[in-house]
């Protein structure tokens, strides 16, 4: 197990002058930021500001229009298809819906990366898969199909699969979307305890304030109008001292609640 090294200065993901978008439609221009080893880094912003688009670029699904994305020092933007697949194996992704393969049981889903990329004997693979499933509190559900479990469980199973190869980085696409507040809070606690236990670096896309203040070490805030980052730093710091009015309002939404 890796040492917990939060707040170290080592950079694991670096984005330089990145422009994102589709064909001739530009979503962001000239983004620059880095993610350090062991931290929980949150990408946030209002609806439609392209959080998920940025994530798709970071994990190599969409080719950048310009700029560089360095994951563990290797450039995703200029990698050949084969190199890209190798870089991708170094991180795990939890998709919004879990994206479990519906024809396989939960355990087979988690075991798939292991059987594909390692030559471990079957028994070891199975026990490794069960270990990951118990890390996300899903022991006893190994032989269930994805269609038979709840949304929150699907996300946790997806998380177990993302962690199957012990990646150094985990990406989350809106982990709290579609979950009730309690399951959502439980998932946040799970994220925190996984970081404690494994020291894994996490990049999370979300707009749930509760989640942000619970888990985030550092955030960047995207803006639709300027097509770029309008502020970054510790969310608690930004809430009280941001120079940007919109950021302050966004992070202070709690004050609009009726008491």
């Amino acid at each position: 197990m890796r040492e917990k090294t939060a707040n170290s200065e080592e950079i694991v993901v670096e984005v330089r002058n990145l422009s994102t978008g589709y064909d001739d439609f530009i979503v962001h221009e000239n983004l620059n930021f880095e993610v350090r080893r062991g931290e929980i880094f949150v990408i946030l912003g209002g609806s439609g500001c392209g959080k998920s688009t940025l994530l798709k670029h970071l994990i190599g699904l969409n080719p950048p229009l310009a700029g560089e994305i360095l994951v563990n020092g290797e450039n995703l933007a200029s990698a050949s298809e084969k190199e890209k697949l190798d870089i991708m194996r170094g991180f795990g992704v939890l998709y919004q819906s879990g994206a479990l393969f519906s024809s396989m049981t939960i355990e087979e889903n988690v075991a798939l990366p292991l059987t594909t990329f390692t030559k471990l004997p079957r028994r070891i693979v199975e026990s490794m898969a069960r270990v990951k499933l118990s890390l996300v509190d899903l022991q006893g559900f190994e032989s269930f199909l994805p269609g038979e479990i709840s949304g929150g469980m699907k996300k946790r199973a997806g998380l177990a699969r993302a962690m199957a190869l012990d990646p150094e980085i985990l990406f989350f696409d809106e982990p709290s979307a579609g979950l009730d507040p309690i399951s959502s809070a439980e998932l946040d606690q799970l994220i925190l305890s996984l970081r404690e236990e494994t020291g894994v670096t996490m990049v999370i896309v979300t707009h749930e304030l509760d989640s942000i203040f619970t888990v985030a070490d550092r955030v960047i805030i995207l803006d639709k109008e300027s097509a770029g980052i309008i502020d970054q730093g510790d969310p608690r710091e930004l809430r009280d001292n941001s120079s940007n009015e919109w950021v302050k309002r966004f992070l202070n939404r709690d004050s609009m609640k009726r008491v």
Binding site: I59, G60, G158
Partner: peptide, 17 residues
């Protein structure tokens, strides 16, 4: 349906074709 469900994306980012 796998595409809608992001399963194809998941396969790709798992390093599978």
């Amino acid at each position: 349906t796998m595409k809608v469900n992001e399963e194809l994306d998941a396969m790709t980012t798992m390093g599978l074709k």
